[in-house]
Amino acid sequence: MTRSSKLPLAQSLAGVPLTGQSEKTPLHDTPPSAWLMTLEVRAIWEFSALLPAWPLLNRAPRGDNHPVVVFPGLSANDISTVPLRRYLQLLNYSACGWDQGFNFGPRPGVLQEARNQVIRTFARTGRKVSLIGWSLGGIYARELAKELPEMVRGVITLGTPFAGSHKATNAWRLYELASGRSVTRESASYNLPVAPPVPTTSIFSRTDGVVAWQGSIQSPSPQNPHTENIEVVASHVGLGFNPSAWWAIADRLAQPEGEWQPFLRQKRGRIHGLIYPDPSRPA
């Protein structure tokens, strides 16, 4: 098994979100504005948009019944991922939650149980597991894939701050309150910006009111060319209910194992180019 840091996973994640880039590469350390934070209430409309979008979502490519584990965000539990998991089950995936209640950070035993869940699922099904993580849950998914690449088929994250300073989110104080840990004290030399050695997709929004979108950008890497960023128009709270995010997730999961191709923003006869802005455009 490969390791992403000098310490075991439970220790390397103890201070998420952590930083590990070179000193020559300054980290984005400004959180989203108060205005964007206020606009997080639009998550209600994103959820309500699922119904009119259903005829199109129902046309997404079907899966091959491989297992998918979905990790919730900070202070959320499996209830928050029920709509997404039900959708994936309808598309013929064996989707499940993390089965550990509320995500209050990497408390003792939490990360080891998450790791064991991936190992058990792989052993039970004999198939590699896709990991989806929302916000903090995406940190878990990425780091588990680094430890267990032979058991993980791919990783998809939603608004996950793996490439920025802990100060670049409006949730770090909530993290400290929920976990009882000091982010500043625990932030150290772990290389979270480095992608796992498996196909990895970061879905993000420039109008995210909780996590600065710059912290969710995966830089190209010759070590792992199977990485990509997909931009959607969404709130942070609504990313797990956003129709365009769901379509992107379904599109990524449906790729045959070992035949990864980058996401196509524009397709003939569709308005993908409008729904999915160019993630590489200037800020």
Rank of each mutant, 00 (worst) to 15 (best):
S5P: 05
K6P: 00
P8R: 04
Q11S: 12
Q11A: 13
L13G: 05
G15F: 12
S22E: 12
S22M: 05
K24I: 09
T25Q: 11
H28A: 14
D29N: 15
P31E: 06
P32M: 03
A34K: 12
E40R: 06
R42W: 15
I44S: 09
E46G: 01
S48L: 15
A49P: 06
A49M: 08
L51Q: 10
A53E: 11
P55G: 07
P55W: 10
L57P: 01
N58R: 15
R59H: 12
R62N: 10
H66T: 09
P67N: 01
V68L: 08
V68S: 08
P72Y: 02
L74H: 05
L74G: 02
A76E: 15
A76Y: 13
N77L: 01
N77S: 14
D78P: 13
R85I: 01
A95S: 15
C96I: 08
W98C: 07
G101I: 07
G105F: 03
P108F: 08
G109Y: 08
Q112R: 08
E113G: 09
N116V: 04
Q117K: 12
R120K: 12
R120F: 06
T121E: 07
A123K: 09
A123M: 02
R124E: 15
G126P: 05
G126V: 03
S130K: 04
L131Y: 05
G133I: 04
L136D: 08
G138F: 05
I139L: 10
I139W: 00
Y140T: 14
K146R: 15
P149R: 00
P149E: 11
E150D: 15
M151K: 12
M151I: 00
G154C: 05
G159C: 10
T160N: 07
F162E: 05
A163W: 03
G164A: 15
S165C: 04
H166L: 11
A168E: 05
T169F: 09
N170G: 02
A171P: 04
A171M: 14
L174Q: 11
L174G: 10
L174V: 13
Y175W: 15
S179K: 02
G180F: 08
R181G: 01
S182Y: 14
S187D: 14
L192R: 00
P193T: 09
A195F: 02
P196L: 00
P197Y: 09
V198E: 01
V198S: 02
V198M: 06
P199C: 09
P199G: 07
T201N: 01
R206T: 06
R206I: 05
D208R: 05
G209H: 07
G209W: 04
V210K: 04
Q214A: 13
S216K: 05
P220Y: 04
Q223L: 14
H226S: 11
H226P: 01
E231F: 04
A234C: 13
H236P: 02
H236T: 07
F241R: 00
F241V: 01
W247L: 15
D251K: 06
D251A: 08
D251C: 08
R252H: 13
E259C: 04
W260C: 10
Q261D: 02
F263Y: 11
L264D: 12
R268D: 09
G269D: 10
H272I: 06
H272W: 15
P277Y: 14
P277I: 11
P279Q: 12
S280I: 02
R281Q: 14
A283M: 10
